[in-house]
Write a protein that binds this DNA or RNA. Structure first.
Lengths: 206, 206, 206, 206
DNA sequence: CAATAATCGAGACGGTACGTCACGTCTTCTT
DNA sequence: AAGAAGACGTGACGTACCGTCTCGATTATTG
């Protein structure tokens, strides 16, 4: 694990006393993350300079480097800090409805200003394995676990095959969305999500 | 307007005579593209400096800038020039076989050294619309046209629904591959390709 | 001798026949020299690029390099070609009048647009001995020979000491002008010339 | 506004506290000036590249540009920093002796390795008024003020006319030296200095 | 009249230095 | 001890000229 910031919680357990000296400025930390997100949204990954982040946050450059080893860790942290509590799966009694509703929310995010941040993360991840790992762990994995449960309910209700490969099924549902999001060869619409669910879930029926 | 190198064909038509001045060195052009691909494969997009490309190619920096406006155009061209005549679709009489064979070839490329170049292109494309457009036009579009024909044969043979949305179907087939390629949350294997075809094509049957 | 151009006359003597091949374009030669003078007058020596001269003269760069080995030879030639037939010494019967009249003409030139060219030559001459030598040979020496005669007349008329060191005297007269011209610490005026002659010639009286 | 290094004295008066941030490296400043003088002495002005100065001084190019806007400012500063406390005027009771002794020292400098630097400054000054102004202000003016005093003593002793034009007289003394230094048409010798003083001071007697 | 030869313009070539920018590190004073 | 400030050495950026080269076109002499 590279970045220190999120690991600094020290909440439970040993109850270590605070080290001597001036404590870390929470205000600076938040300003840095906020500026990072803002500049990421404006210019994409390659144009994001730590120099600009520090200036925008009204912070010394060294303060950034003290807590984040490099640009990748910084945007990873910034992205994680911005991940709201949305994107949950409903439980409507229908796999199709459960999935398509969540997928529509994802699409809405991809099409919003935060989509630029996601694509910046994925781009940065192509040359930094820590970044892509952070994306998987912090953004993807929690949702995928919820998705497993949603699919499981579908299996129990007999909407899906018993032996369905859930990862394959989920990749078949989300892959096309990521593809259109990143390659932009076709529009990403709610209607597309519906027809995608129609097609793929049809192939997974018992 | 400077041509972007590959547009300099001047093949048919007006029979324009060569413009005055020393003609462009084909040798330099090839050396630059070759060095670009090599360095791209070694270090990824962000570590690729035009300075290094020029040095490696034994060429003046100005010669690179004379013909390519920026790094993105350079790697786009280099990638296009390396796109061989592979990746064709067979015609075996079965959509499943036709598609899965071609998809396996694609996966093989993604897993090879050239995969690094593809991911660099896609990453660069997230902050440069010309790059992603070039990827679509030069790499994706030709293959997708062949794919349409392949699917059309499947329709005529009754393997697929008459009114199938081909773009949706193709995105459902290739999207999962791109997703695993870029996010790397699961292995990209030939077996995965087969089961992916099973799943998706099952949903497209009449 | 460095430059070829002026030596290409081949006027008298051997009557060599013209060599085969296209002869040198006199028009190009003149255009180059004219453009050199113009650009020299605009921007001084260091900003004068052969690229700009060739462009301004509507001439290929190679044509410049074919006939002048470097920038110094070029401006030397250009300066020489621009040296008019002015700056002669009158013979009024008074050394003071003869000298001061010629010196005033020199000052007038120094203050005109051609002064910029002279200062450019002198500046270039500080890092290229051929340039300063050309300035001495082509500009200074002919006038100094006339000056010797003028002073000689003064000696014969009893206005100057018989054993006067003419070079010392001439340097004392012209040196202050060059100094003010180059260092610009005081104005260069006709009145200054007069008082300069008063002072220096007073010291050379019998 | 960036100070031009030597103006950063902040000596008397307001007692401003040091500004925040890492202070300027005096070591780097001195290394740069030293390297400048050395390279200037070797190759003259036009061959002096800031790249080479930085490399020779073991300093980043940006550090040079941070403090000196261009090559001219750099050599001006370097020259000024090298101008020792020499070249004072003695007070021997004779104008001729006072002047000629100082002028001989000047000639000695002109003929030494530092002469190359002076001629480089004067050359650069022909296309940059800041350079020639700096030469006047930092090198010439202080000495000229001493010279005024020296001449004044001569006036009081009755060696010079009461109403003598001091600037004219000084230009007549120094102009010939500068002329021979820059045009190099005659040798610059101690004997020349003596005879020059003889001639010019003779013209300034009461 | 054709062949030969040197010039011309244009402009691409491999280079060098330019002046700028951001990197990640450092040194200072302040909190 | 952490903070803001900002200078440091490093190195790539994209530009401007350098002096050389390779073109087709032009203009002369020679066979």
């Amino acid at each position: 694990m590279r970045q220190k910031s999120l690991a600094s919680g020290n909440h439970g357990g040993a109850r270590r006393k605070r080290p001597p000296g001036r404590p870390r400025s929470e205000q600076a930390r938040l300003a840095i993350l906020r500026s990072t997100l803002q500049l990421l949204g404006e210019n994409g990954f390659s144009d994001l300079s730590i120099e600009a982040v520090a200036a925008d946050a009204g912070v010394g450059k060294a303060t950034v480097y003290r807590w984040w080893p490099d640009k990748a860790a910084l945007i990873t942290d910034a992205f994680a800090s911005s991940t709201g509590q949305k994107l949950h799966f409903p439980d409507t009694g229908s796999v199709h409805t459960d999935m398509s509703q969540q997928m529509r929310q994802l699409v809405k995010i991809f099409l919003s200003r935060r989509g630029r941040i996601v694509s910046a993360i994925l781009a940065a991840g192509q040359s930094d394995r820590d970044v892509i790992a952070a994306f998987r762990d912090r953004f993807m994995k929690p949702r995928r676990h919820e998705a497993y449960a949603t699919l499981q309910r579908g299996v129990q209700r007999g909407e899906l095959r018993k032996n369905v490969d859930m990862d394959l099924l989920l990749d078949s549902l989300y892959g096309p969305i990521y593809m259109r999001f990143l390659i932009r060869h076709r529009k990403l619409t709610p209607d597309f999500v519906d027809r995608l669910c129609d097609l793929v879930l049809a192939g997974a029926r018992p």
